[in-house]
């Protein structure tokens, strides 16, 4: 079981993560945990108050990327190559959204990551994610 820092840290360096109120919690190397408190402006279904799937995707993308970034063998930066999200159920209205992601394999060019989004219990996921991240040279622009 991973040790979780109760309060976590604000992710101030990334404007959009900060805007969503993401908090990064203490995690082991190559394993990241991020939380986002429930907010009315993130709702995707005004009738039920369920947050939008796009929020879940964003946090999972960020969490998978962070898992790769904290891999002890990583030299450079990462950029998302692809990401697959499967939605199992709606998030519970009013509850904090949690994601837990790991980088389970790192090669010279690619970091393979997977993770889950949940509210109360990690074994009852809202969504799962699988992603591949390209490793880019530090401070070099992603090919554009």
């Amino acid at each position: 079981m991973t040790r979780i820092h109760e309060d976590g840290y604000e992710m101030k360096a990334v404007p959009h993560s900060s805007e969503l109120g993401m908090r990064s919690h203490k995690a082991d190397p190559a394993h990241a945990i991020i939380s986002v408190a429930y907010q009315d402006n993130l709702v995707g279904n005004p009738e039920t108050g369920v947050i939008h799937g796009g929020v879940v995707t964003t946090v999972l993308d960020n969490c998978c990327g962070l898992a790769a970034m904290t891999h002890p063998d990583l030299k450079g930066m990462v950029a998302t190559l692809d990401l697959r999200i499967d939605y199992m159920r709606p998030a519970k209205p009013g509850m904090t959204l949690w994601t837990s992601c790991e980088c389970y394999r790192l090669t010279r060019s690619v970091a393979f990551c997977r993770g889950v989004a949940y509210d109360e219990d990690e074994r009852d996921p809202i969504a799962t994610a699988t992603g591949a991240f390209m490793i880019t040279a530090a401070k070099t622009k992603f090919e554009n």
Partner: peptide, 22 residues
């Protein structure tokens, strides 16, 4: 507020995904 990487700078990948989903 949509920026995910201020160094490049680039839109947050999650924002792009959410935009596609929407």
């Amino acid at each position: 507020k949509l920026i995910g990487n201020p160094m490049i700078p680039a839109l947050h990948g999650g924002v792009v995904s959410a935009f596609l989903e929407i």
